[in-house]
Design a protein around this nucleic acid. Sequence first.
DNA 1: CTCATTTCTTGTCATTTGACAAGCCGACCG
DNA 2: CGGTCGGCTTGTCAAATGACAAGAAATGAG
Lengths: 195, 195
Amino acid sequence: MSSSRENFFDFIRQVIPVPDEVIHSIIKPFEEISISRNDFFLRAGTYTDQYLYLNKGFIRAYSHNQEGDEVTTAFYSGPSMVFEVYSFFSRKISQENIQALTECEGLVISYNQLNHLFHSLPAFRDFGRAILVKGFSQLKQRMLSQITETAEERYNRLLQSNPEVFMHAPLKDIASYLGITDSSLSRIRRHFGQK
Amino acid sequence: MSSSRENFFDFIRQVIPVPDEVIHSIIKPFEEISISRNDFFLRAGTYTDQYLYLNKGFIRAYSHNQEGDEVTTAFYSGPSMVFEVYSFFSRKISQENIQALTECEGLVISYNQLNHLFHSLPAFRDFGRAILVKGFSQLKQRMLSQITETAEERYNRLLQSNPEVFMHAPLKDIASYLGITDSSLSRIRRHFGQK
DNA sequence: CTCATTTCTTGTCATTTGACAAGCCGACCG
DNA sequence: CGGTCGGCTTGTCAAATGACAAGAAATGAG
């Protein structure tokens, strides 16, 4: 069994505790995929029929604002589930780009296969729902942080909770994720370093 | 059939087109509820076993920041589904309050009943997933707006997309939802009125 | 109706952040 | 090796927003 499958097995077990053979039936229809550095998992203006378990690697999602500048909407590092929730589940063109910042490997499943699992395997329903719930509540948390905390507090929070972001993403992309400009992030780093 | 049940019927049909009798089996286990103005559907520090279809009325959700000030996290007006996603699905204590700003009426179902429907009725699985997906992507949209737009643009966006908010919620609660102070909102309103 | 409380506005001033431009530095390439 | 380019920092100034306080207006309780 590939390393991706082994790790996906453990990943699922952590989300929903069910017998091993059930987990195996979940994993079976997934197919191995690798994404080269800088390649796109999803391009704005298109849509992808892939729901990804990212085993290893680092990924950035971004959109564009009205002026056309890139705005980072998410960072993903393996192991985690990666998909653009609206585009994948509504089967519509995506507004968002999802791009590999490093070599990535993982497992994918199509919408139809996912739905088949969803309707035939109770455990996968619970898994899928738990993944949505987790993503949703993390975003709520981030929204609250965006509204109530200063840029410096958000920077520190990211540094604590997601230090690997700083190993893979250029500062300008981290800045737009934090909702500030790259200059401001640079100043925050300097001031914080002095403390 | 109560007005809530009739409207819930139409609400479900708009989300997932399935035969009427299927919709009826979804609605059946829901129970009618009414919430008085200012009463709490969910109080921070507790948890509720209710997943709400809000038929009529207006509801605000809010948390507290580190300084203890209220921060509005969402507004809901009927018809819509109302629940705190993490607290309800993980059955944990909520950090968030959900409070009726007007008399409300709707239908509720417990976690166990919801799970029973979820695992026995394919249509309800699709419905539940669609509700999660919709809430999730709306929040992503709001996050992007928060990061890329000015306070005035966000104010105008809310005015366009959700004018009923201004009929029910005090400005200070709208301000914290927009991520600004009530003074700033007041100034934005004045400047905008002049244009 | 009247009083108390809350909500909203406004003023003043400080702070944060952005816009823009220049410069530094390290990576990569011919 | 020299040059270019992207990423990062820094300076200057302007704009947006917050903090705080005072007062006006609206609301609610008795």
